[in-house]
């Protein structure tokens, strides 16, 4: 759905409002991602002072987290599809895409919670691991809860091609969760 078609349904005031919300959310995302960058720096700082990272004897399982990362990316993808469908006035497609996205999201959240509880290693390694996974999880759960509410509202028919901001904004926040996680995934498991 192109920008132009959307504009037809919106008043000048509503357009200004939408523009503000988009800019505001983008700035918030740029800003808050810095907190995650800060934790990544903490991670690098910690590992630079340790003889081995992960510490000797700690086996890091990469397979499950990789699957979960893919699940989260898929979740984000379906959320985006949902937004697109909503803007094209395909409410049915919107809710079904959103349902699949939420499903992937829930799998991610549950498995990563398990990973958090069974964090490998001890001392600084485990603390930093739990800090990062836990910090991300708090965000994922809070935003995930919001997405579920949006889904319920969507099923109740609250959204339309001219009233889509909660959906678009929610999907953007979920993209944020995904981007933050991909950064963490690279730092925690790959390097």
């Amino acid at each position: 759905m192109s920008q132009k078609t959307l504009e037809q349904g919106l008043s000048r005031h509503e357009l200004q409002d939408l523009r503000n919300k988009r800019t505001g959310l983008a700035i918030f995302q740029i800003s808050w991602i810095m907190t995650f960058v800060c934790l990544i720096i903490v991670n690098f700082w910690m590992r630079s002072s340790q003889p081995a990272w992960p510490p000797a004897g700690v086996e890091v399982d990469v397979f499950v987290p990789t699957l979960m990362t893919i699940a989260l990316i898929a979740s984000s993808f379906f959320m985006r599809r949902g937004v697109k469908a909503l803007k094209a006035n395909a409410i049915e497609q919107f809710t079904s895409a959103w349902r699949i996205g939420l499903g992937f999201g829930v799998v991610f959240a549950v498995v990563m919670a398990y990973e958090f509880i069974t964090a490998p290693g001890s001392g600084q390694y485990r603390d930093v691991y739990r800090l990062m996974v836990g910090f991300h999880h708090v965000h994922a759960l809070a935003i995930g809860y919001y997405l579920i509410r949006v889904y319920q509202n969507g099923r109740a028919g609250h959204y339309s091609p001219t009233n889509f901001w909660p959906v678009e904004g929610g999907a953007s926040l979920w993209d944020f969760v995904t981007v933050a996680w991909v950064l963490f995934y690279v730092v925690l498991y790959l390097i």
């Binding site: 740029i30 800003s31 991602i33 907190t35 800060c38 800090l131 910090f135």
Partner: peptide, 17 residues
């Protein structure tokens, strides 16, 4: 503020933990 304050938030999180 938007670029630097998140570092304060990150640091304080560690401190409080």
């Amino acid at each position: 503020v938007v670029m630097a304050t998140p570092f304060l938030a990150g640091g304080l999180t560690l401190l409080i933990l």
